[in-house]
């Protein structure tokens, strides 16, 4: 009976994951490997293709592509285009925070936690969750953005001016290693819940109920991984080890954003992201 409860929890979290996250790993992998029936994503690989494609960043549906050439004629400095691209990226990130919040609320017991603790769990967990989810959209050559409509190459991201060029490379390095674990969407749903329910976040008021919730999800994840990946030895331990790398990644990310705020006079951070990053680490 206990195992049946854990299976029910796994099913529930997988359904929430599908409900709140628009681009699943399964769909992203299909697009990346060219196995979808729809058109291939628009590729951004240089400033010209960024100028052409940036209009559609954050679009769920790509407009008719005949219009593209018109945008290529606009003469702008690379620096302006980079900054505007960063703004669009931020707005998608804020939307993703909303999706993660809805997912967190669907974890049984989460909304019964102290409201201050819910805020703390999200503040500390949300960037880690987003980095994990971004890994699903990445391969060694680039990443999908805009709900899978655009593929942005890793080389192009590396070619941006400092510190923009330093933002994604550590995430690619992490993603390549993380993707080798070959988790599927149902595993990911549980892993994300485990991350959110971390009882060691600074400033938590009532740790015990959080740890109790996390323990149940951990048991579910362990069972799920054994059933879903019977031949993958020590997968549960390997997955949990990634949580240490994630904290370092978030720490570095927040410091880069703080650096950006100092060096880019025109940059204004989205208010939701400001809230999350202020006094984070």
């Amino acid at each position: 009976p206990e195992s049946a409860d854990l299976r029910a929890l796994a099913k529930h979290l997988y359904e929430s994951y599908l409900k709140y996250f628009p681009l699943t790993k399964a769909k992203a992998r299909a697009i990346l490997s060219g196995k979808t029936s729809g058109s291939a994503p628009f590729v951004i690989h240089d400033m010209k293709s960024l100028t052409e494609g940036e209009q559609f960043i954050n679009c769920r549906q790509m407009p008719v592509m005949e219009q593209r050439s018109e945008f290529g004629h606009v003469q702008e400095s690379a620096s302006e285009v980079e900054l505007r691209f960063f703004h669009r990226w931020q707005y998608r990130s804020a939307e993703a925070v909303r999706e993660v919040t809805e997912f967190a609320k669907s974890i049984p017991g989460f909304v019964s936690l102290d409201l201050n603790d819910q805020v703390t769990l999200l503040k500390y967990g949300v960037i880690e969750v987003l980095i994990i989810m971004t890994a699903s959209l990445m391969n060694k050559d680039g990443m999908l953005i805009s709900y899978g409509q655009i593929f942005m190459t890793r080389e192009f991201l590396k070619s941006l001016r400092k510190p923009f060029c330093e933002m994604m490379e550590p995430k690619f390095e992490f993603a390549i290693k993380f993707n080798m674990l070959e988790l599927d969407d149902s595993d990911m749903a549980l892993f994300l819940a485990v991350i959110i329910l971390s009882g060691d976040r600074p400033g938590l008021l009532n740790v015990k109920p959080i740890e109790d919730l996390q323990e149940t999800v951990l048991q579910t994840l362990e069972l799920q991984l054994k059933m879903n990946h019977p031949d993958s030895l020590q997968l549960f331990a390997k997955v949990l080890q990634k949580m240490t790398d994630l904290r370092q990644l978030v720490n570095d990310h927040v410091h880069l954003i703080q650096l950006l705020k100092k060096t880019e006079v025109d940059m204004c951070l989205h208010p939701l992201l400001q809230e999350i990053m202020k006094d984070l680490y």
Partner: peptide
């Protein structure tokens, strides 16, 4: 903490109404 995280707090409290991000 809630005061310093008004948007996050609003996202947590509003379950159905769309939040203006």
């Amino acid at each position: 903490l809630k005061e310093k995280h008004k948007i996050l707090h609003r996202l947590l409290q509003n379950s159905t109404s769309p939040v203006d991000l």
